[in-house]
Amino acid sequence: MDDDSSRTGGTSDGHVISDWSGFDTPSVAIVMTVAAVRNRDPVRMQPLNDVIDVDALDTLLMTATSTVSLSFTYENVDVVVSSDGTVDVVQPSE
């Protein structure tokens, strides 16, 4: 993920919001956003497909005719991804 601040931004309540429309697929945006939040190399993270079916996730979000949201835990953060193009990652409390 590049440093385009229009794609990713933090909020004061521990959420990091990303716009997946700038990525090839929602699943790529999820991995890259979580990697940024966790300060981890995405290659060294658990494969997202171990947590959720990425083909089904991408297809559902990219073809939805109304707003659809999915939530799950990945790499110890809560992720909410929506067909409106947002990825919301809740950072762990310290």
Rank of each mutant, 00 (worst) to 15 (best):
V43R: 15
A36N: 11
L57K: 01
D24Q: 15
I52L: 15
S27V: 04
D41Q: 08
F23T: 11
V54M: 06
S71W: 14
T65Y: 13
N39L: 04
T59A: 02
L60Y: 08
G22E: 12
N76C: 02
I52R: 03
T67R: 15
M45K: 03
T67Q: 12
S27T: 08
P47D: 02
D50F: 10
L57M: 00
I30L: 07
N49I: 13
D19H: 11
T65N: 13
T73L: 10
D53Q: 15
V68R: 05
A35P: 07
M32Y: 05
T59Y: 06
L70H: 09
A64S: 08
V68W: 05
S71M: 12
G22A: 15
W20T: 09
L61W: 00
L48S: 00
F72I: 09
D41L: 07
T25P: 05
A29Y: 06
L57P: 00
V77H: 03
T25S: 05
V51Q: 06
A36E: 08
D24S: 12
Q46Y: 07
N39D: 03
V79C: 07
A36M: 12
D41P: 06
T59E: 12
A56Y: 13
L61P: 01
R40P: 05
V37M: 09
A29G: 08
R38L: 10
N76E: 11
V77M: 06
S21T: 14
A64E: 04
T73Q: 14
P26Q: 05
D78T: 10
D24C: 14
M45N: 09
W20M: 07
N39T: 03
S71K: 13
D78G: 05
M45P: 01
P42C: 08
G22S: 15
M32L: 12
A36D: 12
T73H: 15
E75Y: 04
A29N: 08
L70W: 10
D53M: 14
D55L: 14
L70N: 10
D78C: 04
T25G: 03
S69Q: 13
V51P: 08
P42Y: 03
V51T: 09
M45C: 04
D78K: 02
M62K: 03
D78F: 04
E75F: 09
T33H: 07
T33G: 05
D19I: 13
N39G: 07
P26M: 09
Q46L: 04
L61R: 00
A29D: 15
A64N: 08
M62R: 04
D53C: 15
A29R: 01
P42I: 00
P47E: 03
S21R: 14
I30F: 03
S71C: 15
V31D: 06
R38K: 11
N39F: 01
Y74A: 01
R38I: 08
F23M: 08
R40I: 01
R40W: 02
T33A: 14
G22F: 15
Y74G: 01
M62C: 02
E75N: 03
V43W: 11
I52A: 11
V54S: 06
V28H: 13
V43I: 13
R38Q: 09
M32I: 03
P47M: 04
